[in-house]
Nucleic acid binder design. Sequence first.
DNA 1: GAGTGGTCTAGACCACCAT
DNA 2: TGGTGGTCTAGACCACTCG
Lengths: 293, 293
Amino acid sequence: MGGSGDRVERGRRRSRPHGSLGPVNEAPQAADAPREPQEPRTPRRTSGRTPLYLEVAEDLRGAITAGAYGSGARLPAEDELARRYAVSRGTVRQALAALRTDGLITSRRGIRRVVLGGPGEENAATELRSFTRWARSLGQEPGGRTVSVDPGTADGEEAEQLRIAAGDPVYRVLRLRTLAGEPVMVERTTYPRAVGALVAGMPPDTVSYSEQLARHGVLFTDAHHTIDIAPADADDARLLGCRAGEALLRERRRSTDPAGTPVEWSQDRYLPGTVAFTAHSTAASALGRRLRP
Amino acid sequence: MGGSGDRVERGRRRSRPHGSLGPVNEAPQAADAPREPQEPRTPRRTSGRTPLYLEVAEDLRGAITAGAYGSGARLPAEDELARRYAVSRGTVRQALAALRTDGLITSRRGIRRVVLGGPGEENAATELRSFTRWARSLGQEPGGRTVSVDPGTADGEEAEQLRIAAGDPVYRVLRLRTLAGEPVMVERTTYPRAVGALVAGMPPDTVSYSEQLARHGVLFTDAHHTIDIAPADADDARLLGCRAGEALLRERRRSTDPAGTPVEWSQDRYLPGTVAFTAHSTAASALGRRLRP
DNA sequence: GAGTGGTCTAGACCACCAT
DNA sequence: TGGTGGTCTAGACCACTCG
């Protein structure tokens, strides 16, 4: 989305020409435009549409990635942005917080926010994305095949991760993932009984289990990741076409639903040189290290 | 910090017995205690102390990690927490947002927040921490030695990462990092001229450059990380005591200061089996993958 | 001292979930 | 239908930065 006017007016009692978002992409020079005293704003109804602060955030993101403010440039002050977008300062702050989380801008008391990346720089629009969605967003065609779907009983680690009792029934799925037809990753996922039953009932050529599961109301909203190195075993070597014992980039992941119930415990092994993991961290939180994986 | 009473009363016009934070650790059973009508609260002065929302967050964190609410338990409603802590709902929400970022709780419209981890589970108290601080927080003694500090000129990648011109002067530092005396990681850092000059002036046995730099006003507030695999070169092999060509866990990192100026571009290579990287992701943002590292 | 982001309060309405 | 978190507004004061 671009600068302005491409959003529907959703407010009421507001008398801006049209389009609910002020033009910021074309704004770095402004600061003129006499401000007629505004009638007190009443909260706008968002009525089922995109939250206002996300619209503001996306507009600003567009302006930043389009290079409207060079790298290292300072953003307008919060009050100024609030005026331009005709929203409250709180909403602007919420939008800016989102951009900060994505590592697009800094934030410090006393000085204006600074644009971190640059026009050319890839925006790490991170998300809790499945392999499938991630690949598609890159314009790559994700593929793969399900090697096996087996019912079984949880071992110690699976039980701990899925927060069930050892010996409880689970389903194990082994899949090979490809990108543009080339093998990239071997995925070993353990599902608790209920979720696994759904997976087992899907056609073996299902590209994205997570998308299908979402249709059944199984949502993945949180995930905890651990990244390290693991040697390829015989299966890995056969499927990925590498040497047994070769070092692979390993991601272990436990996903949970909104109720906090673990819905997936997965171990993915990537062929070296195919992918890298990226993360952004600020003074508060983001990436950790851990001893003895 | 624990439940209550270990904080100084900082408010005014408030008539709670003493201690500014209500006892939540001992609260899961409450919900009784007749509420006398409160006089309207006025914003409390934080006057140079820890922000209120952080106190609330830390108290809740303590309650959660202490297991006051079992894993999967639901937290009290926002309004209820606001009453207990005698703060506004906004402040409670700010505190809860911090816990959510750390992956301690979920959050979904319509239902109470759910505790994610469990009593036993290690809290991934992630931070933008230097190797030194990270090691110390684990009770490990960080060590190492500086192999070389060399002035030089920026190559293409360094220039791009540090946002300077190719050929500009830089300092390159090669260090070996140890944990309990054992080699763990080789760190290759490139500093821009000004920062590098400070580093070059420090004694060669300096354990933490970042701590020393902080004293000179050079702060690391943001960092962008990329994690993948790289083979050990001759230096790596010699310093880490591994085979040349052996796969190492590589972290590349660009750190910036509050003004958005890059202050460090580093490439760290960890011996396999020594550390793992952890991250938490929610529906919005956290960990990314990237093609072709 | 002026400008700017950080914190806090108060109140309102809405969307979603469970009952 | 009632409870709960999500969004939005308005106003206030404070801490920090810089000229």
